[in-house]
């Protein structure tokens, strides 16, 4: 991408440098998957949450951990199991005998990056406890409300729903994730290299933070300034509307999805060192941001028309506003 806007914000240019360093650091751990890493960075800068859906052992947890460690911020991991309770995530009020009062013990949700591993193994009740705090960025326990730190990002991993012992996330909760990515198996060369690097010990152990949480906060506010022109906004609305009207889909994208798409496209443009969003950003992000919210119709399921393919078709056919 050669386009370097001469009038780009100096702050943006500097901060993007930081983002690049973080990306590079993460890529030392997750080799051969620049797309997934970049998407994770995009979601981080857009203040969203990410759902990584893939088979076990492809590096879902590694990605989350690497991202958290590259930025010098707190990271907590929650292993979701069927017997996990909501309080195991949010924390509990325990009676302190010394002080003779109830005292709040924060749960693992109180961190900058929360890794919810195999989120679809927990009961829906527990899932919803996590998801509420994701949306509101606060936790209410026993009538007291506790704000969560910024940046706050949930990286949830889940196994494909066909696997045994899983509770698939309801549509309403999937809608709260800004993007879903599939990491996929690495290419042959990347896998070969991984055997060399990860053979003795994990490079994750040597990963040093390359940025501070404050850098990320500055980046996030810089991203908010990225310009989204009228045609691009129209394009987002056209695209979202198209998902609602196309016959292959039973459930289209929500207004929240449009908002997520807008925010993510800003971050995506910023990572390109651009201070304006292109329709290309929308097209690139449409599948990760929208696909997990869409439900195919019965006919489409029979025809194996996955929402990803439906979206790709829509993008190809939908004319750009103001061609």
């Amino acid at each position: 991408m050669t386009d370097t806007g001469q009038q780009a914000d100096r702050t943006l240019a500097e901060l993007v440098e930081v983002a690049k360093q973080v990306t590079a650091a993460v890529q030392t751990v997750i080799t051969g998957k620049p797309g997934a890493v970049r998407l994770a960075m995009t979601v981080l800068l857009a203040e969203g949450h990410i759902l990584i859906e893939d088979v076990p052992g492809v590096g879902k947890t590694q990605l989350a951990k690497a991202l958290a460690r590259s930025v010098d911020c707190s990271v907590r991991r929650v292993q979701f199991t069927p017997d996990l309770l909501p309080s195991d995530i949010t924390g509990v009020s325990a009676y302190n005998q010394d002080l003779r009062q109830f005292e709040f013990k924060p749960g693992p949700i109180f961190a900058n990056v929360v890794l919810g591993d195999e989120i679809n193994r927990a009961s829906p009740k527990t899932q919803s406890a996590l998801l509420e705090s994701m949306e509101e960025r606060q936790v209410t326990v026993d009538g007291s409300t506790y704000q969560l730190d910024r940046p706050f990002m949930v990286i949830a991993t889940q196994n494909p729903v066909e696997m045994e012992g899983t509770y698939p996330l309801p549509e309403a909760q999937r809608d709260r994730f800004m993007a879903r990515i599939a990491i996929g198996y690495p290419a042959r060369d990347a896998e070969l290299a991984m055997l060399g690097t990860h053979g003795a010990d994990s490079p994750l152990d040597y990963l040093k933070p390359v940025a501070h949480a404050s850098d990320v906060r500055a980046l996030v506010s810089a991203v908010r300034e990225v310009h989204v022109s009228e045609p691009v906004r129209q394009y987002i609305i056209d695209l979202v509307n198209a998902t609602r009207n196309v016959t292959e889909l039973r459930l289209g994208a929500s207004p929240r999805a449009a908002l997520h798409l807008l925010r993510a496209s800003r971050a995506h443009a910023a990572l390109d060192e651009r201070d304006f969003v292109l329709p290309d950003d929308i097209q690139t992000l449409a599948v990760p941001v929208l696909a997990h919210r869409l439900l195919p119709s019965a006919e489409a399921m029979v025809g194996r028309d996955l929402p990803e393919q439906v979206l790709a078709n829509l993008i190809r056919r939908l004319p750009l506003p103001g061609r």
Binding site: T2, D3, G5, Q6, Q7, H227, S229, P231, V232, D275, F276, V277, L278, P279, G322
Partner: peptide, 18 residues
């Protein structure tokens, strides 16, 4: 071609045209 595309993108989607 790249120059044209860059100019078009700026003119269409950026705050100020290049």
């Amino acid at each position: 071609l790249s120059r044209i595309v860059a100019a078009v993108e700026r003119a269409k989607y950026a705050r100020l045209a290049g």
